[in-house]
Design a protein around this nucleic acid. Sequence first.
DNA 1: CTCCTTTTTGACATATCTCTCATTTTTGAG
DNA 2: CTCAAAAATGAGAGATATGTCAAAAAGGAG
Lengths: 209, 209
Amino acid sequence: MPTRGHFRDLGKGLPKRDRTRLALIDSAVDVIGAKGMELAKISDITEHAELANGTFYNHFADKDEILQEAAYQVATEMTREIDEEMQSVESAVARIVIATTQAIRLSVEGGTWGAVIVGALQHLPSVRRDLLQFLRADLQKGLEQGVFDIELDEFFLDQVAGLISVGMRTQIEMGADPDKTARTCENVLRLCGLTRTKAQKAVLTNTPS
Amino acid sequence: MPTRGHFRDLGKGLPKRDRTRLALIDSAVDVIGAKGMELAKISDITEHAELANGTFYNHFADKDEILQEAAYQVATEMTREIDEEMQSVESAVARIVIATTQAIRLSVEGGTWGAVIVGALQHLPSVRRDLLQFLRADLQKGLEQGVFDIELDEFFLDQVAGLISVGMRTQIEMGADPDKTARTCENVLRLCGLTRTKAQKAVLTNTPS
DNA sequence: CTCCTTTTTGACATATCTCTCATTTTTGAG
DNA sequence: CTCAAAAATGAGAGATATGTCAAAAAGGAG
């Protein structure tokens, strides 16, 4: 049995019911990482969690319900960590670089989080909305600071998210590559109206260690 | 039975074997459009084609084989039509605008081609490579004409393809919207180094009727 | 530790899909 | 039109998934 999981330790003092529920969510994250959301089977999830098949139905009505929950947990924890990293950063350009870099880093390094985030962006509208709100806030800040030249609406958010998704996906498939992360940031900034030179400089200045 | 299909008429004078094969590919395109590549079942394809289940195996070894073939057919026909439209266009900027606009138009209007193209870009590396070669040629032309400021490699192609995919996907989901197509073109050009103003002007000038 | 409650278990009924193959039907060349 | 070759058919075997439930196990309050 996987001794440690993504969220299992959150349930240390909780009743059995909650611990099992977290173990299932944890397992779902791993299974999504291995096979993708569409091909993840309920039996994959229970087997990987080393629980009986029937246990699943004590906690979730169907596959969609646990996928939604797993994605929500990953998205929440990811945005929490990124937000923490940026608490005191005021510059919108810097915030975009830091958030994009960290989101990709967590997706690629964090075991199997990437597949969950990429899958949620594609298949789970409610989770996607939550994630894009953070992006929107920083883009809005950039407009207020007069550094971005964009029409900030749902479609623009989708396009930026598309760039970041590609940055994640290629690294998930082909291995981590800081250069690809940097260029993803640059391209997001170019989309926001910065010149190539300014974008490159902004990335160099603001990339977290 | 669907009287007309995507490719069925190509097989008018051909032997029975080839006509049935085309009918299956045709049906696969529709099924992919309805359920996506991952969830398309062989039985969906034979039922929608109004053929017996066993017939499938006279023509294809497994699902992957027909998906590959269907995607290849759609991609080939799509690039053929786009290429025709651009035969005499020399300006790289114009070619990018025309190709992007037409690719999205064919994806969104052309019944179910969009899902096939988007699915192929994600799941079928060989088809994706073929499609990206066309994009690469026009970007290369832009470099030679001195109008683009980019590092032209696989990753950049993936990022541009990501923008175009988003343009397709949102319109497949939410209905055709010429403004989204125009802004997708603009954003591709911004990634290539044009200013927002120049990109907007280029789109206005070069959007096909 | 005890004992009632909560949770887990895993066999099973049901459903769905893939792939095979003996048989039937269709094709098209002569 | 005839008939041998080619193709299509669909029932069925095997594999895999979902969802149910009565029985067994574990939990935890007192």
